[in-house]
Design a protein around this nucleic acid. Sequence first.
DNA 1: GAGTGGTCTAGACCACGGC
DNA 2: CCGTGGTCTAGACCACTCA
Lengths: 236, 236
Amino acid sequence: MNIPLYIQVKQKITQELMSGNWRAGDLIPSEIELAQSYQVSQGTVRKAIDELSIEKILIRRQGKGTYVTTHNEEQIQLRFLRLTSSKGNKEKLESQLLSFEKTRVNSYVANRLNLRPGSSVYKIKRVLTFARKPLILDEIYISTIPFKGLNAEMINQKKGSLYRLYESNYGIQMLNADEKIKAVSAEAEVSKLLNIKKGHPILGIERVSYTYGNKPIEWRLGLCLTDEYHYQTELE
Amino acid sequence: MNIPLYIQVKQKITQELMSGNWRAGDLIPSEIELAQSYQVSQGTVRKAIDELSIEKILIRRQGKGTYVTTHNEEQIQLRFLRLTSSKGNKEKLESQLLSFEKTRVNSYVANRLNLRPGSSVYKIKRVLTFARKPLILDEIYISTIPFKGLNAEMINQKKGSLYRLYESNYGIQMLNADEKIKAVSAEAEVSKLLNIKKGHPILGIERVSYTYGNKPIEWRLGLCLTDEYHYQTELE
DNA sequence: GAGTGGTCTAGACCACGGC
DNA sequence: CCGTGGTCTAGACCACTCA
């Protein structure tokens, strides 16, 4: 095998995470302990953990130890939300569930999630509100298989953060996501829900989110009103 | 001083780049040479270069050496362009200059570029075309001071890549950028140039680009037709 | 074969957090 | 005070590039 040792260590650590031995928020063994158990030097473990913490899969805390990233901490909860107020306000986000149903997935979403067309999914519709103004209309699909028993009540309990729900109730962590953005016109139903005129320009954000091993878990389409907000990114 | 050694090495390397001693595309001294000249170990130089190459300021090439990132290489030229065809086509980009003028900057753009309101800037308008269809209408502002003597002919010569022009003719490298995205309606003038109906929804992408030391150099507003294309990002 | 970056080790010391 | 991650060193060997 010509795979570098630190890559192998990375894979071993990832296996512990995928298998559920180490769970979100857990403190993992120290670098020295890992070095002993994998029979490599501390520097090699360090390099593996370095990369995993760049990928935001692990978090180091000097003096304390290395932890598995979690969506349950306040600061990290809105990690995937790129919408910010153009005036710099920091308003509280609220979520209102519109509908929750079990249905069959269409072929487009099935492709994105590596599911068979027509297989069983949960479909979630909701409105996200900032400062009491409706801003985002979400339509979300997840396979019923890993989320067995999910219901509307559970979603309402977690008020807003689906990713916290996935993690705490099903042990599924969202690690990264792809987004595709278009400008579209608000249709009749959308314009009513977002309280705008029909035909008003809005952002259509299509997102696929992935867990360990780049396995796609969730597809969503977010329709966002960007009159007073904007989508923000950094390019390198 | 409590600044880690490798950060100090990073700063020294950055100074070489800012001062113009090492220019875009140059091969910089080897890790061993740098370690000797800075009186630190090779490992420390390595860590400094590691970070600079993550920031895409330097590029390592095994067996050859470490190079200063350049916009002149084909693959890296469209680094900041996030617009891709929804159908997966890879069409050639062409640029058509609409206007080039020297004018006074308004206060909004002045703030973004750390200029005094009313100071002298070049204003560039152009249309970017993919597969012979107009897709992006750009309006670009840069201070006249670092770009003394710039004219329309120089822009036409470089066909498309302004960043290549900045780098090769003025030694100014764009390292990173912030973008703010909104959905807007096409106004009369815009709709004519992009060959769409008035009021059609388009993306408004506002970008500020930075050089060494996070110094803002260029402000631009890109109006993008996203009927057959989309803006793509990855979230971590 | 010489020179470059890439991996790996062993060991020292520092800075931080918490008992 | 101890254990953690963070920095730094010195030296070995590997993998790649090019003359």
